[in-house]
């Protein structure tokens, strides 16, 4: 079963860490992902640039409109993701709980639909 783990955090909170701690968190996340990949549980993962770099795209009546910023203003922002493949939700929760950002942000675990969006 594939799950998308969406990592949400307050960019303010992350930026408040001293730089050596931010580096330690980043190193921990990288090596954790490396470990998951070796175990065959990680399909893809990446941190994201901050929300200021986001562009939202909509097409209405054939016209494309692009706006600056994320779709919705929220306290926590999407900071990165992990796409994993594990037997069940308990395994997914275990993996999410060990991701460093879970300690100061949150991880939303969403099962992925295997047969397209109509199903």
């Amino acid at each position: 079963m594939k799950y998308l783990c969406l990592v949400y955090l307050e960019e303010k909170v992350l930026n408040a860490f001293p730089s050596h701690e931010r580096r330690a968190i980043s190193d921990e996340a990288m090596s954790y992902c490396e470990k998951l990949k070796k175990a065959g549980q990680l399909l893809a993962a990446s941190p994201l640039h901050p929300v200021e770099t986001a562009t939202t795209v909509r097409v209405r009546e054939g016209k494309t409109s692009t706006t600056d910023g994320p779709f919705a203003e929220t306290k926590e922002q999407l900071g990165g993701f992990l796409m994993i493949d594990v037997p069940d939700l308990n395994d997914a929760i275990r993996i999410a709980a060990q991701f460093p950002a879970a300690r100061f942000g949150s991880v939303e675990v969403r099962p992925m639909k295997e047969l397209g969006c109509a199903d």
Partner: peptide, 10 residues
């Protein structure tokens, strides 16, 4: 069913 919560004692 959809999130596949396993049927197990932890």
């Amino acid at each position: 069913r959809d999130a596949r919560i396993p049927y197990e004692v932890p």
